[in-house]
Each structure stands twice: as C-alpha cells, then as structure tokens.
Design a protein around this nucleic acid. Structure first.
Length: 927
RNA sequence: GCGGAUGUGGCGGAAUUGGUAGACGCUCCAGACUUAGGAUCUGGUGCCGUAAGGCGUGUGGGUUCGAGUCCCUCCAUCCGCACCA
C-alpha cells in the first residue's frame, strides 16, 4: 500500500487547527523566538509557487526552534489596503473590502494546504478597524511629538510648548521646518492660530506644501520609493512633480540613527548598502554667498569647501525661491521661460535627458565668501530642488557636471587641486574635470599647499570664524509623504478648525472608513472621502479627506502580533518585554527602501516613547530569491501556421511563441492539445524531429502572459504538501533566484515514498523493529543529525534535503527498520515534511504532536572512525586512495605510501623530495 | 557612471576552515519486471580517448606541496541607484 498523502495531510491539518497546536503563549520560563514572514497583499490571482518559498523556509525554522525548546511566535496576517482592490472598485462598484475579504479567504485556503505552523489566532489585517485603530493612534503620537537634537530623541510637543513659554525657541535645537526664531514674549504675543502654525514646523507628522510625486492616472501622490524611473511602481503610470499641501512624517530626524542601526543588525550586506545609499549621508559644509546689490544670501551645501577658490559660478534649481527675486529685468523673460519649461517637464523626460545641458543666466552675481570674487548666478535643472539647499557653487575644474556646464556656456574653469607628482595644466585642454579626491591645493589663498583633507577642515574653520558657513552633514533621505488621495486606506483622525488641523481625541479611535457613493475624486478634485456623508466631527468640523499610504499599516504589524487582542493599547508592555523583537524575518528585497526603512523608523519612534524595548525591530533578515518561470516556446515559420521543432528551427525563418507549459511534458509538445488550445492553431502543422515536437525554453518572470505560471494547488493535489515543501527547498539556496522546473519534483516524491517504506511494507503493515542498531546504522543517523542541525542553522535548506535523501537511501540499503534509528529520523524530517512525520510519529505509538518532541542529540562517538581513506596525490594530482589508521605516526606514512606497488609508477626514477601529510585530509608526494 | 552580487556537467545545484571537484536530484542511456508503461527496481551518465591516460569550476596571470575556494587582470550576466553638489 502506497503512502496516501491526501488523507494524511488533511488529517494532520485538521488536527493542528482543532488542537491549536501552534498557539503561542508568552511564558517567562522558556526562551522566546520570533519568526516572521513579510505578510502578503492578497491579490486576486492567488499564490503561485514563488510566493510560499520564504514561508516554507521560515516555517521549517520555526518548527526546528520548537524542537530545540524555544517558545516560538510565528504569526501571519494580511497587508490588506492597496490599490488593486480600489481600482477594481472604481471599475465595478464592488466595495474594496468585499474584494479584499474574498482574496484573503482564497489565500488562507492555499496557505492552509501547505501545512504551516502559524498561530492563526494572532492574525492581523491592516484594514480591520481593530488593527488600524493603532495605526491611527501612532500617527497621532507622531503629531504630538517633536525631535529634540539635544537629547537625540522624540519628545512630547507639550514640553516644547512649555519651553516656548519660558524662553521662546532661542535654546531649542530641533529637527524642524523653517520656523524662524522668537522669544517667550513673542510666543505669548501670538494668536492661537499662529502658535499652531509655528508648532507645525516641529511636529513629526506635519502638514506642509511640498513638491510631491503626483500620479495623474492613479489620482494620488506617491512616496519616493513608490516611483521607479519616473513611473509609478504599481501600474507603471507617469509621475510628475507638483506642489501640494500634504502630511509628511519627519523620518529625516532619524537619518543618522537609521544609518548607525544598520551596523548592529544581521541583514544582507547588499540590502544594508541600499539603505545606506537611500539615507545618503555626506559630510561637508554649508557656505553662505552674498549677492551683489542684494540683502539676500544664498546658502549652498558642498562636500568640498576646499575648492571654494575654484568656484567660478553658482547655480540655482528652477524651483529655488530666490530665482524670481534676483533675476535682472533684462534677463527676466528668458529665465521665466526656462523655469516654466523646467518645472512642467514630466519627470521621465528630465531623467531621460540628463546629459542634455540647459540653463539661463539670471544676471545676478554671488560673492564668494573666501575671496570676495563676484561670480555669475545661473538657473539650471541639473541642480535639484530637493537636495541640499537647491543651490550650488560650481567648481567646473573638479566636478564633471559643472565642467560640462561651463564648457557648454563658455564659463571660466580654474584648477585648484593637483595630484602629487603632477603639474597644473591648462583646463582648456581637458576633456573632463580633474579628479581631486587627493592632492595639494593650488591658487587657493591661505590653504594653498595643503593637502585636500587639511584644506577642508581649514576652510571650515575659516568659514565658521567669519560666520559665513559651517561644517554640515547632509542627507539624501527625504521626509516621507504620508497623504494619499485615495479611498482604500486608513482615515486620518484629524479635523480642521479655521484651516488648522487638530488631532481627534484618542478615545474616539478608530475613526472608521466611511461609505462613499463612488471611489473617485469629487468634481472639485477632492479625494474620495470628501464624498462621504457627514464627514465631520459632532461639533461640525470637517475631517481630513486624505487617507494614509500602504506603508502605514505595515510599519508596525510585527508589534501588534505580540498582543493582537488588546483593545486598550497597541500592545502590552509585558507582551513586548517578552517577545521583544523579530529574531528572524524573511521576505523579498523589493522592500529595501520602503517598508524596511519605514518600519525601522516607526519602531525607533516607539522606542523613544518608551513603548518598545528594542531600537531595531528585525534582528536577522533574509531575502528569499525569486522563483522564475520556465517558459516553453514553439517556432512558427513566418507567414505560415507551420511549427518547426526546436533543433530544426535554424533552417527556417521563424518566430518563437510562448506556449502554455501545461501542453508540454519534458519539452515534448502535446500537438493535439496544442491544436485545441486556441482556435488560431486549429489548422497548425508540425515539422517534427524523431517523431516528436521539441519545444525551446527560456527562464523568465512567472506571468500569465508567458503561460508559465505554476500553481501550488495542482502540485499539492498530485504530490502532497510535504513533497511540495521539500522540493521548494531542494531547488537551491534560499537567497538565490532560481528557475522552477516541475519535472524535478518527482525525485523528492520518490524520497517521501522511500521514507514511508522504511516504516511500512507493501501491505501497509508496520515493520519497525526493536532491535539494537548496528554501528553502521548509528553512524548514518548521527551523520544526518549533525548535518541537518548545521544546515538549518546556516539556512542551507537545500543541502539538508539532500542529506535526508542520502540517509534514507543508506538505511534502505542497510535494510534498517529499527525504532532507535527511525524515531529520531522522523523528528529530523518533521520541520520539512510535517504531515508524514506526524503520521510516522503516531504509528510509532506516540501521542501527537511531534512538534512537542526534542531535536535528537548528536553523538560524536557514533560517527568517529579509527581509519581514514587518504587520497594520495603525486605533485598535486590524485592517483590512488590508501586507508590508514588515524593514529599512524607521521614517520610511518612515508613508508606506507612508498611501499605501495602503484607508487613506483608515479615516482619513476625521480627522487622523492617531500611528503605532505595532513591528518584526516590528504597525502601529497612531491617528486 | 556608482554600488552590490553571480559565473561549476545537458539542467537545478554540492564542495561549511586552501586538501578526493561534480554530493543530491532531474534528464538521458542500458537492463530487469510487465500484456503494456509516462509505474517500480538495478546499473551507467563532466569532456576527449578502445585503453593507459589527458583535460576540466567565465578569461589570463600569481601565491602554494596543493586553488572552485586566496591575490591581481579582463570578460559576461543579473540586481539596485543614478545630475545627490
């Protein structure tokens, strides 16, 4: 009787659900371990074989940790707000919650069939009011806090108000907007309205006019990480820049801490690099340039204050506020035209035309603070409004962009750095700017002769003394725009009185998402929530109509899992102090600069508030690779409906077409099925090779349009969840991208049945015996215990599966059916193939569940040997093997090797110069 | 342009610290059982060669008794970022 995976898997899935086998309960007596998957957005298409890869890996690890005695938290939930459900609602009128709930049900069904050990009692959905109550609550805390640079943490705005009442903001050092300075008297003199406007500059969640990424097709703004190459990440629609009044989160306040924290967490280096780059720290100086005949000044940021003497012009971004003010009347027309053109140009054009040089002279001159030199001020779009101050000093000799610009408009170029051993040369003869990372200063006033490093600090000191600049650290990271002009998201618990936003009372949370008649903006262009009836407070004040972005709900979900039933708090202190942080987080690297940076920020803020006890939320993170599709191709002869087999295709002029992989077995096309596949192929003819039509193949993204999608449900029907889990792991290293080839699953399926046959014979009778295991059998078992343990610890799941196969192959060979061997083996495979393991465990007379068993202990003495088969090389080339005792003295090795008949052949009449003997490794004879 | 990664049989991959390259599996070949096989089992399967043997981890060089592994050079592919001053 063959192993019946259908019955067995259903039996155990029902058992686990009914008995809540994987329910996690905080227990101070046991060490905790928190294993988390990035929760999915439940799309309408359901899961394909790529999605569960990371979930299977984390599940294996979670089950392994249980066997090792840890109290494991392994929850799952849904990132349920998102554009697809809303776009569908716009088209069909179906409420997004309906679509979302349906998709969640489908996901749940698919997930359940794979046999995960999730504690489903802790499930969270971001669109559930019980959950988003705390997303809204956290937003209010951001609103009610400011960032104190002196203490380097977030503090309540109430305390800030008391400080303003005492001494204005003269002693305040905050990360804030352009607040200006005021005294206590001035503060008291302000109206309540004015005070609120001042405070808005300090809040960590603040409302301001910002240049945003506006996506007309989606009717909403997008965060920087939601834009790729000038197009929206979801949907691929064009994005433009627009000035809008928006909520933002002051993530920039945490830039340095977010950067420093990276050194303390075990994440892939590439991912950390991505975040470092996204944060974009650079050290330099802020320098203040005067403007000829103006009282205004221009502040620039430079990483190379030492090259100030080489600054020959300045450039303002088209959006810079001084452009209008300083442009000379005779230049006005040209500058206005240029600015209008540059501002309205779609973002994608600007990015595509980076090498195209454009700009206009304003007619104004800046005054170089180090030498009083007057240099022309230009406007050009190669200077970005969003970075630094939106203005630069141009040093064309040593910056390639400035160089190109200077060449194009014939502006002067002055060399101020020369590398050691080189002489200054005429910039007119250069093809590009002169690399100046190292070298000596020339033509640079008092810093002439210094090396670059000395010169930088000397210049900063000089600027600070003269109050014309200061050393400064600049970050590329921008504040996170937090408003979306969409329906399907968390409403802001904020109302407006006289145009000033006020937080709702926390006792009124959650502020539930209202019903609307249509999921579109209003005729006046307001977001969909403006359609909601009575969208105002009981007092009649209008409520905010924007909703929160997708990352709002996903930034703290891992905290909510710790205590998801709590209605009085985000999570209890006790729960957080027990579960603390995520020990292992598995998910895709597409979240590198989105979710993974927002979540760290969110957590750090809650850490400042004293609510969470760990500053970093995710201790170790692994990016699982993507599973690619393996497409099948047929070759149609151009202009005909005749298809030529793969190896004959070069003889014809033909075009490859994707064919559904369901019609192909082992690269052989089922021509009959192909003819019936689509009406256009009903009269297809074939040119065969050896009587068969062989398809070509290609590895590419799994997608419907390429007809290469593999669905886990079909595979689980046919082979079972255990086989599916093992095969997903067997495919290759967890982190690497790898193609899916259904063919290979057969090997793992054979393994499962072979494992079964160690326990039961063809009639289905238990054949486990109680005899004492032989040393050989013990050696197989303990080699496996060690290998499985070590492989799981280093997340090498593919090699662990290989070891299971080796173990079962060897035990089959040895005809071993002994309980003392098979019982530990069942435990070993249980994290990987939990259903069959439970069944075997039960049939050995144990009461369920095997997840309560202990991981078998490895015993060195069972694998120890007293001889070793040495590979013997001559001049590094392996010639034969020789079994020698392990304790053989080195002197005797020479004799043993040279006395072998075969050695004479490889030595010949040459003298033996040396014999290398490495115990337990190798013998190498040098002749 | 900058940053990161990866190159091993027909395919997925293994080799954890410089020490037997190709474990394990797929494919393919041969055989057994069978009315039959797309079931199962046995054996073989890096390349060249009848063999002895030679050659082999993207390329070229180096260190070493010994290199897939360390160092330098170049090439290819993938990913991320990209006028960031």
């Amino acid at each position: 009787m063959e192993y019946n995976h259908r019955e067995t898997e259903r039996k155990w899935q029902e058992y686990w659900a009914k008995n809540k086998t994987f329910k996690a309960v905080a227990d101070r007596r046991r060490p905790k371990y928190y294993v988390l998957d990035m929760f999915p957005y439940p799309s309408g298409a359901g899961l394909h074989v790529g999605h569960p890869l990371g979930y299977i890996a984390s599940d294996i690890f979670a089950r392994y940790k249980r066997l090792m005695g840890f109290n494991v938290l392994h929850p799952m939930g849904y990132d349920a707000y998102g554009l697809p459900a809303e776009q569908y609602a716009i088209q069909t009128g179906t409420h997004p919650s309906v679509t979302t709930e349906k998709n969640i049900q489908r996901y749940r069904k698919q997930l359940d069939r794979i046999g995960f050990s999730f504690d489903w009692d802790r499930e969270v959905k971001t669109c559930d009011p019980k959950y988003y109550k705390w997303t809204q609550w956290t937003f209010l805390q951001f609103f009610k806090h400011w960032y104190n640079r002196k203490t380097d943490r977030a503090e309540p705005v109430e305390e800030l108000i008391r400080e303003f009442e005492r001494s204005g903001n003269l002693n305040t050092d905050a990360v804030c907007g352009p607040a200006g300075s005021f005294t206590a008297d001035q503060w008291h003199g302000m109206t309540g309205h004015e005070q609120q406007e001042v405070l808005m500059n300090y809040r960590l969640a603040y409302l301001s006019d910002t240049w945003v990424n506006w996506c007309p097709a989606l009717g909403t703004v997008l965060a920087n990480d939601e834009v790729k190459d000038g197009f929206s990440e979801r949907g691929g629609h064009p994005v433009e820049r627009k000035l809008m009044r928006q909520w933002s989160l002051r993530i920039t306040a945490y830039a340095q801490r977010l950067l420093d924290g990276l050194d303390r967490i075990e994440w892939p280096e590439s991912l950390k690099e991505m975040q470092r780059y996204w944060i974009g720290r650079s050290e330099g100086a802020s320098v203040i340039f005067g403007i000829k005949n103006h009282t205004d000044t221009i502040e620039v940021f430079t990483t190379r204050p030492d090259t100030l003497w080489g600054a020959t012009f300045m450039v303002l971004a088209p959006e810079h506020e001084l452009v209008e003010k300083i442009t000379k009347p005779e230049r006005r027309e040209g500058v206005q035209q240029y600015v209008a053109w540059a501002k309205n140009r779609p973002e994608r054009d600007r990015m595509a035309e980076v090498k195209k040089i454009s700009g206009e002279f304003t007619g104004a001159f800046g005054i170089n603070p180090v030498n009083g030199q007057e240099i022309p001020i230009w406007v050009a779009d190669y200077v970005l409004a969003g970075y630094g101050t939106g203005a630069i000093m141009a040093v064309p000799a040593h910056d390639s962009r400035d160089f190109a610009f200077a060449r194009h408009f014939s502006l002067p170029i002055i060399q101020v750095v020369v590398r050691d051993g080189e002489e200054p040369s005429d910039p007119l003869s250069w093809d590009d700017s002169y690399d100046s990372k190292e070298g000596r200063m020339i033509q640079s006033g008092f810093i002439t002769g210094m090396n670059v490093t000395e010169a930088i600090s000397a210049t900063i000191r000089f600027l600070e003394e003269k109050k014309m600049g200061t050393g400064k650290v600049n970050f590329k990271l921008r504040d996170a725009i937090f408003s979306r002009q969409r329906y399907w998201g968390e409403p802001f618990p904020v109302f407006y009185r006289d145009g000033i936003p006020y937080p709702m009372d926390e006792s009124l949370l959650p502020l539930e998402l209202p019903e609307v008649d249509k999921y579109l903006p209003t005729e006046t262009g307001d977001p969909p929530l403006a359609r909601a009836k009575n969208w105002k407070t009981p007092e009649g004040y209008p409520i905010e109509t924007n909703t929160m972005p997708g990352f709002a709900g996903s930034s703290g979900y891992y905290l909510r899992y710790m205590d998801p039933w709590n209605d009085d708090a985000y999570f209890s202190r006790e729960a957080n102090e027990y579960w603390r942080d995520v020990d292992l987080y598995i998910g895709g690297d597409e979240h590198a600069t989105g979710h993974l940076i927002y979540a760290r920020f969110w957590n750090m803020f809650l850490f400042d508030m004293g609510l969470v006890c760990e500053a970093e939320p995710f201790k170790k993170l692994i990016n699982q690779g993507k599973i690619q599709g393996r497409s099948s191709l047929v070759y149609r002869i151009n202009g005909t409906n005749t298809f030529v087999s793969f190896h004959l295709r070069d003889n014809y002029n033909c075009t490859p077409l994707h064919v559904d992989i369901g019609l192909v077995d082992n690269d052989v096309l089922n021509t009959e099925a192909f003819i019936n596949w689509r009406s256009e192929f009903s009269n297809a003819a074939f040119i065969l090779e050896e009587g068969r039509y062989i398809c070509g193949w290609e590895i590419e993204k799994m997608s419907k349009s390429k007809h290469n999608v593999v669905n886990p449900d079909d595979l689980i029907d046919h082979y079972g969840a255990d086989t599916f889990r093992l095969y997903e792991m067997f495919l290759g290293p967890l982190e690497s991208h790898k193609p899916w080839d259904t063919k290979g699953i057969e090997g793992v399926y054979r393994f499962i049945r072979k494992l079964w046959r160690l326990f039961r014979n063809d009639e289905g009778k238990l054949i486990v015996t109680d005899g004492e295991p032989s040393p050989e059998e013990l050696k197989v078992l303990h080699t496996t215990i060690r290998k499985i343990r070590d492989d799981i610890e280093r997340f090498s799941f593919n090699t662990a599966v290989s070891q299971f196969m080796i173990c079962v192959n060897e035990l089959t060979e040895l005809n071993c059916h002994k309980r003392q061997i098979l019982e530990p083996l069942a435990i070993l495979v249980s994290p990987y193939a939990p259903h069959i393991a439970e069944e075997l465990w039960e049939s050995l007379g144990h009461s369920p569940s095997i997840s309560g068993a202990s991981f078998p202990e490895f015993r060195e003495d069972y694998v120890a040997e007293n001889t070793y088969e040495y590979p013997v090389s001559f001049n590094g080339k392996l010639r034969f093997r020789l079994r020698l005792p392990l304790d053989i003295p080195e002197e005797e090795v020479r004799n043993a090797v040279l006395s072998e008949e075969i050695s004479r052949k490889w030595i010949g009449d040459q003298p033996v110069r040396k014999i290398i003997f490495i115990p337990r490794k190798i013998i190498n004879v040098v002749v």
